[in-house]
């Protein structure tokens, strides 16, 4: 009885998961297909299926600047700079904070640790108002720094709490031994703890990288031209004249592929970090 039931159950599992998978992949497939169609075929109804795939959209994305405020490659550079610097700064400040929370006992520790986590709830739209005015009066509009500092702050709660989980996995005995050897706090952190939590830091950094790579609202308001990031570029393919479908979808594929590849490769570490150490890789 058990075997037959299991058999039916397995069939059922496929019957549920495969349509679900197709449904989940459908928008992505549409993006890929549209990105290799000639611009004018992209939105034809009924949809055109027998087309000759072309990479013209990708080529023109990186070539001409006609009709666009900034070239897409320039926006990609901005995106890379902003998200990489954000990640590095976030990792440095976050690891330091996480180490303090994980290893030290001090007055107000409970409050500070709860508070760092609870800053997670502050919506970007809310903190945007004062930051918009501040950035304007400091004359920092359209600069990388105007994006990086808020992005670091937005990523800190998760960075601190993920890294805290990884630090707790490091046996205290090792650190105590180092302390006996006369290492200072920063030396212990740098020479003993960080090498041991590197994989965890990698996963954390991927999360921060993804978050800052994808951020839309701050980039929309605080950039104009020079510091404009790629997600804003995507939205700008929609103009009064219509939508440059081919280039828009090609650009979408270009900015999502690195994230997809990262996510697939680091998924185990990512889960480990996001479950705050409940699962070990």
């Amino acid at each position: 009885m058990g075997i037959r039931l299991r058999y039916i159950e397995n069939i059922l599992a496929y019957l549920i998961i495969i349509p679900l998978l197709l449904l989940f992949l459908f928008p992505f497939l549409w993006l890929i297909i549209t990105s290799v169609k000639e611009g004018t075929d992209a939105i034809a109804i009924p949809p055109i299926w027998d087309f000759h795939p072309t990479f013209n959209n990708y080529i023109s994305l990186f070539r001409s600047t006609e009709g666009r405020s900034a070239d897409f490659s320039g926006m990609l550079v901005s995106s890379v700079i902003v998200s990489v610097v954000t990640t590095i700064l976030g990792l440095i400040t976050g690891t330091m904070g996480a180490y303090a929370i994980a290893r030290y006992k001090f007055k107000g520790k409970d409050f500070i640790s709860t508070w760092t986590l609870s800053t997670l709830m502050v919506p970007a739209a809310v903190s945007l108002i004062p930051i918009f005015l501040l950035v304007g009066s400091l004359n920092l509009m359209d600069t990388y720094i105007a994006l990086i500092i808020p992005y670091v702050a937005f990523n800190l709660p998760l960075i601190i709490w993920m890294i805290r989980g990884f630090i707790l996995d490091v046996p205290v005995a090792i650190e105590e031994a180092a302390m006996v050897d006369g290492c200072s706090t920063f030396q212990i952190l740098w020479k003993v703890v960080i090498p041991l939590i590197l994989p965890g830091m990698a996963a954390t950094s991927i999360l921060a990288l993804i978050q800052s790579w994808n951020e839309f609202l701050f980039a929309l308001v605080l950039t104009r031209d020079m510091a404009k990031t790629a997600p804003i570029g995507i939205a700008e393919f929609i103009t009064m004249y219509g939508i440059q479908w081919g280039e828009m979808t090609a650009a979408s594929i270009v900015i999502t592929s690195p994230i997809i590849i990262f996510t697939i490769f680091v998924r185990k570490y990512l889960v480990r970090g996001l479950t705050f150490g409940a699962v070990k890789g």
């Binding site: 990186f62 070539r63 070239d71 490659s73 320039g74 990609l76 550079v77 890379v80 990489v84 690195p258």
Partner: peptide
């Protein structure tokens, strides 16, 4: 590798 490629391709056009 990915970062280098994006940077390079982007830098040329810039």
């Amino acid at each position: 590798a990915v970062l280098t490629i994006t940077l390079l391709s982007a830098c040329t056009s810039r």
